[in-house]
Nucleic acid binder design. Structure first.
Lengths: 186, 186
DNA sequence: TAAAAAAGTTAGTTACACCAAACTTTATAC
DNA sequence: GTATAAAGTTTGGTGTAACTAACTTTTTTA
């Protein structure tokens, strides 16, 4: 077993495309991949041969294209990175969906698992913590729009305290389910 | 004037290296660049020719290497992206400095100005807003370390309120200076 | 100042990733 | 069931960016 040397950004894009097409249709055709990745169909042939050699896709000339188990694992990881980045851009940085999507496409190839895990954790905490959450985000939105800062935050603290009380009441009845319990780095 | 088609990640790395070497020493030598970018010196010659053609570096064979005004502007922008990413990784995501540095090196080539501006704005707001800031970050740190969440946030709210009072007192005496007043996207 | 070392360049090669054009295979339509 | 269209492949060529090895220029040192 090779220590799985990293895929190039281009190959990751092909893998991601095959993953998405396979989800939508039953089989992935070279034409679909070419359309999605926006390359010439002859480039797809080359990419498929390369990905096949790496054991990531099942490929034989003129045959239908599927991901191997290894390929599926890798594609899922790329899609996860993409989704996490897009969510952060949209929910936290308040970037519009189209631009967030484009940015995620580029950054997903450059970011490590450690940072993606932290980012997911961060967005989650933002939504859970009563001092953060939606009221805090409203404050950030104002900050972006008109440079408003600390002098208005007092109002939100009040909202936060109310939110905290509400949560305490909720907490009393139901037990929480945990996910993404990222501990300190080793 | 060309609409300045984007530089490749590789060329951005060279530009950044020349920028940093120029800051440290008086003149940038090809050897220094090769050492910094970790490439063979013959690769540097090729890169310099390419950057020279694009009007970003002043280059003549065997001569010293400097950035043009255009090159300096571009390099400054890359360095800004790098710094903003690193700061976000270290201060907000609590990634250790070494890994943050490595990550910033990769991501800086993939991220747009819009998002970098927002990220800078975000980190700034985080430090300004009394509901965010250091107390909030302590909460996030605990969340990362042991999955602790909402039930402990009450303590921090108290700290936040104290912080807010302190800020109000400060506000009363001195006038604020504004920076990074990012408005809504066009 | 002449020899040696260091720095820089050139030439030739490799790998990746793309393209257009020509060709082959498979699918669709009549 | 054969003609045609669509899909897929091969061939040959481009550009980027790296390398090694051989060479030239500059700098250092003795």
């Amino acid at each position: 077993m090779s220590p799985a040397e990293p895929l190039s950004a281009n190959m990751e894009d092909y893998l991601e495309a095959i993953f998405h097409i396979s989800e939508e249709k039953q089989a992935a055709r070279a034409k679909d991949i070419a359309d999605r990745v926006q390359v010439n169909k002859s480039s797809v042939t080359g990419a498929l041969r390369s990905l096949s050699e790496k054991g990531l896709v099942n490929y034989a000339p003129y045959d239908i294209i599927t991901l191997t188990t290894k390929g599926k694992v890798l594609a899922t990881e790329i899609v996860r990175r993409h989704a996490a980045l897009k969510e952060f851009f949209v929910k936290i940085l308040l970037i519009d969906k189209i631009e967030a999507e484009e940015a995620a496409c580029k950054v997903e190839h450059a970011i490590s698992k450690t940072i993606i895990d932290r980012l997911i954790n961060f967005v989650e905490f933002m939504e859970i913590c009563p001092r953060g959450g939606k009221a805090w985000l409203r404050g950030f939105r104002r900050h972006c729009e008109n440079g408003d800062t600390a002098n208005r935050c007092g109002d939100y603290i009040t909202a936060c305290l109310e939110d905290l009380e509400k949560r305490k009441r909720q907490m009393a009845s139901s037990h929480k389910t945990r996910k993404h319990g990222v501990s300190s780095q080793k």
